[in-house]
Design a protein around this nucleic acid. Structure first.
Lengths: 227, 227
DNA sequence: CCAAAAGTGTTGAAACTACACCCATGG
DNA sequence: CCATGGGTGTAGTTTCAACACTTTTGG
């Protein structure tokens, strides 16, 4: 099959889950990377992953990996794609079922130990182990597609946020600037925002109105957004 | 993990590909099913599948399964989702990477041996092995989503087709009726159809204009349709 | 009083929906 | 000549893109 490595067909596959964990920190879209301590690719950065236990389903395996690394639950988690090129992993056949997760920086409950687990800006990734660059890029593409259908950007924002922050998160994900008036019009028209009667003054001069997401409306629209 | 079956953690997973093969026959959306000759689920209908060879990537494995059953190549084939519930397969842990394929009935080059390999209408499926009902339903959902973005319905039609046939294929996939004038307007405006100067008289009274797809335009729009 | 971000409306273009009748042919 | 499916256009609505100035506050 065009592969210049021989395999014993009696040998079996190994199966892992890998999770692309995305968040926004300081106005940058970031991905969580671990520095590998084992061969292969010892010393390279990689997205977190692990073997799937025989008794757990794939979503549970991804949640477990996520929880181990970030200690968060209850976030947006979606199966991304399964990568199974025979050469993606040296010497062994490892098929990985990749997931991606979006979470709020404020919810992350883990010590970022400089040098072994770090957030990296998605637009300047270090050299990565295996095919993890491809996996991260695909997760960004998928996130963009999702965002155009449903407002998953929530998942990246604090519970109370300004419209400018929401717009910034859209712009970071879609990697383009949006028109402020059109953006606000569309968001407010969608009826998924609750205007809190609170104001943020952080960083700005004029206080900005805070909003949160209407989880009830959102649930009722789930069928519409997520089909 | 909420599973009332015990597994030896040293045991390893098996990994298969399963392929949902869809076509249109006699104005019905059909899926290819095989009658299982082995346990488990001996005698039940199932979608074609097989183990992934250590030296082949997932797409190649799906293509191989497809070719074995239908002897066609060069069709629309897309990875669907990976199903890995520990209880989906009795006694063994089998993770399956599901694909779906769309193909023209006229291209299918295989003896449909009544009773062991058959086309079944998707709206009245027989009892199926494993989680194959779920897999088929998910493939229909995905096909609908794709169709709203790009005209993959081509893949189900003969090379020359009438606009009515094209509309019927949309209606079968989307499971709703469409307005004839709006449909034709939109299709013709998209510039992906070539009007052949030929006419079909099959089945109808007035001859209908035949069209084919403009593969050049289609390729150049691939970025637009498929992103 | 000035810098900086918040906030706000209108207009034109494009896309979509709804809707009803005549046409060409085979039998 | 009639039954059958093929073929066509318009008007109202909604959605989207483009675009610039005023307001509020902190310093």
């Amino acid at each position: 099959m065009g592969v210049n490595r021989t395999f014993t067909e009696t040998k079996t596959h190994e199966v892992t889950v890998d999770v692309v964990i995305l968040t926004i920190i300081k106005n940058k879209l970031k991905v969580l990377l671990l520095k590998r301590t084992n061969e292969p690719f010892r010393g390279r950065w990689a997205i977190p992953g692990g073997f799937i236990r025989l008794s757990e389903n794939l979503d549970d395996a991804a949640l477990r990996v996520l929880k181990e690394k970030t200690n968060v639950q209850n976030i947006y988690l979606e199966q991304l794609y399964t990568f199974g090129d025979p050469l993606r992993y040296p010497n062994t056949r490892v098929i990985t079922c990749a997931y991606f997760a979006l979470l709020r920086a404020e919810d992350i409950n883990v010590k970022i130990t400089e040098g072994s687990i770090e957030w990296h800006s998605v637009e300047k990734l270090p050299p990565l182990a295996f095919d993890h660059k491809e996996i991260i890029e695909y997760s960004l593409k998928r996130t963009r597609e999702r965002l155009e259908l449903c407002p998953i950007a929530f998942q990246l924002l604090p519970k109370k946020f300004t419209l400018t922050e929401l717009q910034k998160s859209y712009e970071l994900i879609l990697n383009k600037t949006l028109d402020k008036r059109n953006f606000r019009k569309k968001m407010l028209a969608s009826n998924i925002l609750i205007e809190l009667n609170e104001f943020s003054k952080a960083g700005s001069k004029r206080p900005a109105a805070l909003y949160s997401f209407d989880s009830i409306t959102l649930d009722s629209k789930r069928g519409h957004f997520f089909s």
